[in-house]
């Protein structure tokens, strides 16, 4: 029996529920979206927006990480030349994965990560880790088979076989949202109770960091967001705030926009603003983005061409 994805909160773990997985998948769809087709906008109402921002952010980060995958040595080399010294990268060769700070290319065929050097010709995959935390630098012990199956349901389009060990939980501005990010995702075999929880990601709360590429907030005014975050077209917006949704719906920033509406609150105003926004957008059938939402979700998918 293979290990399965679990969520860990404090010291207890729970098998990753379908609704959470659906949200991660939505994140990967948003992250994989080709921006040349316009800005993908998803408004999603769910029974509770708690953790939804985290799950979607994780999917986006997963997809963004994949985009740095290189298929050939030449492409890999050119990508590495654009990297700044000190950025975190992840490499895989066979089943071994290493995550560390990129410290440069040496002798045209070696990559230096922290104190070690690796031959480019032996590296099968390389990713730039979009992480604000310090990723663990140790080897990933997960077997390839498990990783493949994880890919399959998390993001069917993604052939990523390694995974950055720190995933960014995007930005929040209030202390109470921090609790929603304090979960980890990992692998565990329920049949083997002594089997440890193998962490593959965690959520990190970041505030006031200009490098962030996404936002998730519960109570954040538009002014605060625009002032502190300097969002741009490389930045995804994941917004769990019905009120801010009204103000932010039509702002022409961001690479993509995900509005998470909490059905605990009145949705009328938020829906009005989204409907108003939808007049400038092209509505997209949910089947076209290959997402099958959980029964509890309702929403709309649109493409904003005014980028």
């Amino acid at each position: 029996m293979a290990s399965e994805l679990h969520i860990k909160e404090s010291s207890d773990t729970l098998k990753m529920p379908d609704w959470f997985r659906d949200l991660v998948t939505l994140g990967t769809i948003v992250g994989n979206w080709d921006s040349s087709n316009g800005r993908l906008v998803v408004a999603l109402a769910c029974p509770t927006s708690r953790y939804a921002a985290s799950a979607i952010s994780m999917g986006i980060a997963w997809a963004e990480t994949r985009k740095f995958r290189s298929d050939s040595k030449e492409v890999m080399f050119s990508k590495l030349q654009t990297l700044s010294i000190g950025e975190y990268i992840s490499i895989r060769a066979n089943t071994k994965q290493v995550i560390g700070r990129f410290l440069g290319i040496e002798n045209h065929d070696q990559i230096r990560i922290d104190g070690s050097r690796y031959l480019l010709s032996r590296i099968e995959e390389i990713h730039i880790v979009k992480s604000f935390g310090r990723p663990r630098s140790e080897s990933n012990k997960s077997e390839m088979k498990t990783q493949s199956s994880m890919n399959k349901f998390m993001d069917p389009q993604n052939h990523l076989s390694t995974f950055a060990q720190t995933i960014i939980g995007l930005v929040g501005d209030k202390e109470n949202i921090r609790e929603d990010f304090e979960i980890e995702i990992g692998l565990r075999n329920d049949k083997l109770p002594r089997e440890p929880f193998e962490k593959i990601s965690e959520f990190v709360k970041i505030k006031d960091d200009s490098r962030c590429f996404g936002w998730s907030c519960e109570l954040l005014s538009v002014d605060e967001l625009l002032l502190t975050g300097s969002p741009n077209l490389d930045c995804h917006l994941v917004l769990a705030n019905n009120r801010a949704c009204i103000e932010l719906a039509e702002y022409a920033h961001f690479k993509s926009k995900v509005f998470i509406l909490d059905s605990r609150d009145s949705l009328a105003n938020a829906q009005d603003s989204i409907q108003r926004y939808s007049r400038y957008c092209e509505r997209v059938d949910i089947a076209k983005i290959s997402w099958k939402p959980h029964k509890a979700f309702r929403g709309i998918v649109m493409v904003d061409k005014n980028v």
């Binding site: 109402a45 979700f297 709309i300």
Partner: peptide
């Protein structure tokens, strides 16, 4: 309360 247009 979820209008048809907001309902996938």
């Amino acid at each position: 309360s979820y209008p048809r247009w907001f309902n996938f």
